[in-house]
Nucleic acid binder design. Structure first.
Lengths: 206, 206
DNA sequence: TCACAGTTGACCCGACGGGTCAATAGGCAG
DNA sequence: CTGCCTATTGACCCGTCGGGTCAACTGTGA
């Protein structure tokens, strides 16, 4: 059965993303990956050849997932920075819910362990992503901000808050259902913080 | 010479704190520690007996440093939360400048690698510290905050901003002089953020 | 010249983990 | 039922890593 094979492959993929995200490339353990995936060690190497090839596959897989999600959902025309970042955070949260530690994996791959496999991962894709991320911060409508504050610093505070909010959701000891259950409440909490910041940073609504 | 011995011991201590903070207990490498400290491997084991004993020594050393600094400098009577946290942040910055990655070490020891050496480190000290940290958040004067915002959430935003501000200073690839040079400018930047937050969160000064 | 504390670094050896492959399981055709 | 073939297994191999050892060296002071 094709589905059987594909399903097992995906179990390996998910387990591997989690393992690499937790421990980085070098300290990730293939024994733990196959144990988590519930398959034999041979199968991992049958499908992916080597640890390094598996890593490269995961990197491209993760890049494609995130790229597609941003392309589908993000509205580059929206100029209200709160609405804009609200969409960005929503994408991030949905990806976290559906793909566990995908974000930790990609960030780690891009920043920390890039050295160990740097020749294998296409650095241009990393640059592309950093560029996109940058776009989120730029071309924002600053006219809505209060006149007596530094807009750049205010945007930094918003950015830090979104990060902290989504980050505290990340718990390597939890499984998928945990994310499913808490998705709604986290969205509400994030909105509350964004509303608070909008209220204090924007001019009084007349 | 007593001074010679003590100096070499401290070189090991500093190198070890950096190594453990960077890689955690298990992945820290004693070869790298002695190379960084510029002493032979035998000397490390002559002074500290084993990797684990070294770790325990460092943990107590770090706890004592932080505890003493807080006891000396922190003003528990101050009820303006901005002034209060400003002092806290100042202590943190000074510790970072003088002792490199001390904070990363202690946080990692308490949170991540506690499992591997948990029987050896006194967990009560960890609890004590968490308690003190908690005190920073409590018994604050909330009357100065705007009435139309959630004080708890506002304090979270302040907390995240201080953390982000001090955290981006941490760069494992840099040496001590880097921290020395940037201390002043970081203090200025941190003050600017706190001033911004004070302006938007507090009531209009009449 | 001897003693001795301080210090060295080549070496030991057990653990770890990426990778292999002979063996097995299980499905399907005849 | 039998033979074939593919998917899958997991015990095993073996190179590397790194905590820990110890015989030897160094410098100093008597």
């Amino acid at each position: 059965m094709e589905n059987q094979e594909e399903a097992k492959k995906m179990r390996i993929v998910n387990a591997a993303i989690s393992e690499f995200a937790r421990h980085g490339y070098k300290n990730a353990n293939t024994n733990d990956i196959v144990k988590e995936a519930g398959v034999s060690k041979g199968l991992l190497f049958h499908y992916f050849g080597s640890k390094k090839q598996l890593y490269v596959y995961l990197y491209e897989y993760a890049m494609r997932l995130i790229t597609d999600a941003v392309a589908d959902e993000f509205d580059w025309e929206e100029r209200d920075i709160f609405k804009r970042w609200r969409t960005g955070a929503a994408i991030k949260l949905r990806m976290m819910r559906e793909h566990g530690m995908l974000f930790e994996f990609i960030i780690d791959a891009y920043a920390r362990t890039a050295n160990e496999v740097k020749e294998e991962i296409d650095t241009s894709t990393g640059v592309w992503m950093a560029f996109n991320w940058d776009q989120l911060m730029k071309s924002a409508d600053t006219s809505l901000f209060r006149d007596d504050i530094d807009v750049g610093k205010a945007m930094q505070v918003i950015w830090w808050s979104i990060n902290a909010c989504t980050q505290k959701w990340v718990d390597p000891t939890q499984n998928v259902s945990y994310y499913e259950e808490n998705y709604a409440s986290l969205t509400v909490e994030l909105d509350a913080y964004l509303e608070l910041l909008r209220r204090v940073f924007y001019k009084e609504q007349v």
